[in-house]
Design a protein around this nucleic acid. Structure first.
Length: 741
DNA sequence: CAGTGAGCGAGCTTCCGCTTGACTT
């Protein structure tokens, strides 16, 4: 035992050194025969990663996964001693004691432990906690820190042969972050229980997200749409027709506010003499986008596939853990929670090989590099396919529809990012129309792709740009005639509500939240009934707006994005040992605590003001019913409570089968919402789509629902499958989004 | 893909950030 340790110290890691000269995957036979009873224990965070690394390192190593944090603050109390330098009280996370024991036991059998948690702030803290709980049971065991940013045999070998020590300052930064979030969350939440309603929550991240959504809603509400008109004209040429848009009238941009104005303008342009006055060609280089980070993946999957952030992460997890593609389970993508666009040299080599074989003309001389974001912790690579040779087409039969669609966008984005740029040529034609009433200028532009470049691998990710558009066949000086004017009424559009895609984008830009928390943050806002989702849009509820306004009034500092930005700067200072973490926390805590106490004493409770009045009347006592929020969502209850205990589900529509109420219900298993007849089980009518209030089909009388797809946008459809009222065919095309499953 | 189904109103809740399976209260 002693001698072995001494040897290990001298050459750092003799076993790893042996392997660098031998085959990658198999230990040399000599070593295998002499195989020692004691191994080196490597601890990583993810089990999928553990399996891969174990394969690379061979039998002298055993690899275990911590599956995230094992040690943390208890859930049941604040557990921060504010009197004693904010010392946190750490305990074993509930449900993790068994795994922790296993790791301790494994460590006991090992000659050395290498802590290989992720190379970021949280990973450093995980390593620190592990070291403490392992050394308690194994006092003389050498425990070292290793770090790698990519899972390749070379990177792992390098890491193992260059162990280092835990960065205590980085651990302090994590501790400060953890303590700050606990103090904010566990002080503000109880204040809300007291003043508004039990079970509510507030926090540094979720409350900013809620604030953004609520402020945007105010903008949406206060926006007043304004009418305006556009004019297009059909022109006749020697060879055919084309349509162009009026871009100038009497020397300036046309501003047409009403139907009268547009008719006047068209009358003034009557009998105009039209000449092609200018043709301009512009060439544009279009570069591919960088490979996916988590936030980019969520945004693209939301916009292109209609996935929620949550669904994107669930499906990505399946691809990461592996799918049986006919030769056992294969992990199809790299780790899906990342803030980096970095690509390993190995993966770059493989994708360049693939491009070279399939699109030899579109392989750049050198690998294309993308800048890693400034705020990125860069612990993981970009999200990419593990093997580019598994094209979406090759493996589509082994995957579910959701899996293949998500895999396809990951694959396309990755391969495209290492191909040559595309080139387009845009031809813009200008027609001057001169008449007695004045001179108008029309314009039409068409775009042609002249070098396809990375466009060639985009199928699911293709847009209109990749296909190009027609250009009229005319030349300068050609005389044309107007066949017809096309005036069209429009209204100015207000700001758009946040969606999963845009809230994640905004949070990332503000540096709020992390790849692992974007989806859960949206979920918590939904779970608390602060926000509902309607046609992919996040709409705040009355409760959500009340909470947002209250926090905005009494704790403006905490829910200001600048708060997190300042926190991150101070954490950097802690990491560089320029400031001590308790000092940083104290500076925030003292005024904050004072405010919490003050608001707790002075603010009047808004309990009771949350019930919304309705027009429904109680069948038993005749008093009006009110809309309340209960444990399972909104419901109707008698305003005479507690004297009258009548309750009802909120009627959404009339059941077309029996005339009863259609109400929202949740499935037993996953709690997915559906809409069924309240007379169940006598009547078992159900619908997957939410009924539109008070809207019945003019053709058959069944209720209408709102559907949404890329092609039609939001549109009303009759729920009756036998009725064709506005009934759009659901295209089986892979690019159209399906209903959420 | 098919199939989906309580009762709620005072009583123990909550944060953010790592990571995946799963105690029986």
């Amino acid at each position: 035992m002693e001698t072995k340790q001494a040897a290990a110290k001298k050459t750092a890691h003799p076993k790893a050194a042996e392997k660098t000269s031998g085959a990658v995957k198999k230990a040399p036979k000599r070593a295998a025969k002499k195989s020692r009873t004691q191994k080196i224990l490597v601890i990583v965070e993810s089990p999928a990663k553990a399996a891969t690394i174990e394969k690379y390192l061979g039998k002298d190593y055993s690899v275990k996964a911590s599956m995230g944090h094992l040690i943390d603050l208890p859930k049941s109390r604040i557990a921060i001693d504010v009197e004693r330098n904010f010392e946190p009280e750490y305990i074993t996370v509930r449900g993790r004691a068994k795994l922790l024991k296993e790791i301790q036991g494994e460590a006991k059998k090992s000659e050395e432990v290498l802590l290989a948690s992720d190379n970021d702030r949280e990973g450093e803290a995980i390593a620190w906690h592990l070291r403490r709980v392992i050394s308690v049971k194994n006092q003389n065991l050498p425990i070292k820190r290793i770090a790698f940013n990519e899972i390749t045999p070379q990177a792992i070998r390098d890491a193992v042969s260059n162990p280092s020590v835990i960065d205590e300052y980085k651990v302090n930064a994590q501790k400060a972050r953890r303590v700050l979030d606990r103090l904010v969350g566990y002080n503000l939440s109880p204040l809300l229980w007291k003043k508004v309603k039990n079970g509510l929550s507030a926090g540094r991240v979720q409350s900013v997200a809620l604030r953004l959504i609520c402020e945007r809603e105010k903008e949406v509400e206060s926006f007043i749409p304004e009418e305006y008109w556009s004019v297009e004209a059909d022109f006749k040429t020697a060879k055919g027709h084309f349509r162009a848009q009026l871009v100038s009238w009497r020397g300036k941009k046309p501003e047409i506010k009403s139907e009268e104005e547009v008719e006047e303008l068209i009358a003034a342009m009557k009998d105009s003499v039209c000449v092609v006055s200018d043709i301009r060609e512009t060439e544009k280089t279009v570069r591919p986008r960088p490979p996916f980070t988590t936030s980019q993946l969520q945004q693209t999957a939301a916009n292109r596939l209609g996935f929620t952030s949550k669904k994107t992460m669930q499906v990505a997890q399946q691809l990461y853990e592996g799918v049986d593609i006919g030769q056992g389970r294969v992990g199809l993508i790299s780790y899906m929670r990342t803030d980096s666009v970095r690509i390993s040299q190995l993966a770059l080599g493989e994708v360049r090989d693939w491009i070279g074989k399939n699109y030899p003309g579109d392989l750049p001389d050198e690998a294309v590099e993308y800048a890693v974001g400034k705020k990125a912790q860069d612990a993981h690579e970009a999200i990419r396919p593990t093997y580019v040779t598994y094209t979406p087409d090759n493996i589509k039969d082994s995957l579910t529809r959701d899996q293949i669609r998500l895999y396809t966008i990951i694959w396309e984005r990755f391969v495209a990012c290492q191909m040559k740029a595309a080139k387009t040529k845009t031809i813009s034609v200008e027609i001057t129309a001169a008449a007695k009433g004045g001179e108008g200028v029309f314009r039409v532009a068409g775009t042609r792709v002249i070098e396809k470049g990375f466009y060639q691998v985009l199928k699911l990710l293709a847009t209109r740009d990749e296909k190009g558009s027609a250009v009229p066949q005319v030349k300068t000086g050609d005389k044309l005639s107007v066949e017809k004017f096309h005036p069209e009424q429009h209204f100015t559009q207000g700001p758009a509500r946040y969606t999963d895609a845009s809230i994640v984008k905004t949070l990332e830009e503000l540096g709020i939240g992390r790849p692992s928390t974007y989806a859960p943050t949206i979920s918590v806002l939904l779970d608390r009934y602060y926000v509902t989702r309607s046609n992919k849009q996040l709409v705040p509820t009355l409760l959500g707006r009340m909470i947002s306004d209250m926090l905005g009034e009494y704790f403006p500092h905490v829910i200001d994005p600048a708060f997190t930005a300042a926190m991150e700067n101070k954490l950097d200072e802690v990491e560089e040992n320029n400031i001590l973490w308790p000092d940083m926390i104290r500076e925030f805590w003292e005024p904050f605590k004072e405010r919490v106490d003050e608001v707790g004493k002075t603010l009047e409770s808004c309990k009771g003001t949350l019930d919304e009045p309705t027009d429904y009347v109680c069948e038993k006592c005749g008093k009006p019913l009110v809309k309340k929020l209960g444990r399972y969502g909104y419901f109707l209850a008698c305003s005479g409570f507690p004297d009258c205990k009548t309750t009802r589900s909120i009627p959404l529509a009339k059941c077309p089968r029996c005339g009863g109420d259609v109400v929202a219900r949740k499935t037993r298993g996953r709690g997915k919402e559906f809409y069924g007849c309240a007379n169940y089980p006598e009547c078992d009518f159900i619908s997957h789509y939410k009924p539109l209030v008070n809207q019945s089909c003019p053709k058959c009388g069944w209720f209408l629902v709102e559907k949404y797809d890329k092609k039609n946008g939001t549109h009303k459809v009759c729920i009756n499958p036998g009725c064709d009222y506005l009934h759009e065919e659901e295209a089986p095309d892979i690019t159209t989004e399906g209903a959420e499953s």
